[in-house]
Structures are given as structure tokens and as C-alpha cells.
């Protein structure tokens, strides 16, 4: 149940942490650590290191992403940074620059 929404005109410079879903339509700089899902919508701009369970990105993200479950880069997103997660989905039209680590053991 996602009940935290960072609206499109909001700018947060600092650290966000919590145990619930977070929807970002605005701008967040700093650090995000959640135990649930993070949704960066198309108007959302994130310049932060992200540590969550799930990430869905349709906006812009600059920073390293660590997800315990899944990272999904949707069409028209722009992501710069390293991604570490067991499941990573990159849709057609997504722009991504960085390393991918699915944590595969040899």
C-alpha cells in the first residue's frame, strides 16, 4: 500500500527512508532506502543512491541502484549508474548507462 507521494513540484535534498512504497513525481537528491517499492514516474528526477526491494523507473535517475528483488527500466526512462539486483528488466526505449550486476554466482 503505497501512500507516500512526492509531488511534481517538490524538491527534497537529503535522505529518505521508510517501510512503505514511495512514488516520486518530483526531484529527490541524496539517498533513498526503502523496504518496499520505489516508483520514479516520468516527471520524477532522482539524483541519489537507491536501496530498496523493487524499483520501477520511468523518469530520470542518476545514482547507483541496489534492489533485493527487481529493477525495471521502462520506456523513455534515463538511468545513469550501476544496478545490482537479481532481476533486471530493461524495456525498449529505455536509456541506460552503467554496470549491471545480477549477482550470479559462478
Amino acid at each position: 500500500m503505497a501512500n507516500t507521494i512526492i509531488g511534481s513540484s517538490i524538491i527534497i535534498d537529503g535522505e529518505i527512508s521508510g517501510d512503505e512504497d514511495l512514488v516520486i513525481q518530483g526531484t529527490v537528491k541524496g539517498r533513498i532506502s526503502l523496504k518496499e517499492s520505489l516508483y520514479v514516474e516520468s516527471s520524477g528526477i532522482v539524483e541519489a543512491d537507491i536501496d530498496t526491494q523493487n524499483v520501477e523507473i520511468a523518469g530520470r535517475v542518476t545514482g547507483n541502484i541496489v534492489a533485493s528483488d527487481k529493477v525495471e527500466l521502462k520506456a523513455d526512462c534515463r538511468v545513469i549508474g550501476d544496478i545490482k539486483s537479481p532481476r533486471i528488466l530493461i524495456a525498449d526505449g529505455a536509456a541506460f548507462k552503467g554496470n549491471v550486476d545480477m549477482d550470479i554466482k559462478d
Binding site: 507521494i5 509531488g7 513540484s9 527534497i12 529518505i16 527512508s17 512514488v23 541524496g30
Partner: peptide
């Protein structure tokens, strides 16, 4: 689906388990 629903809410809500530490600015209801 849930993401689309959330897009129609035009204000910012910081949920009960969320901690924000830093500077927060904007031009909408919080």
C-alpha cells in the same frame, strides 16, 4: 495500475513509515 492511480493525486503525502532528513521545498500541498 496502482502507479497510474497515484498520478491523479496532485499533492505530496509523506506516509507514516517514511523518514525524510534534509531539505524539502515545493509549490504544492504537503
Amino acid at each position: 495500475m496502482s502507479v497510474n492511480l497515484k498520478m491523479f493525486l496532485k499533492k505530496t503525502i509523506i506516509g507514516p513509515s517514511i523518514l525524510i532528513n534534509g531539505r524539502l521545498s515545493g509549490e504544492e500541498d504537503l
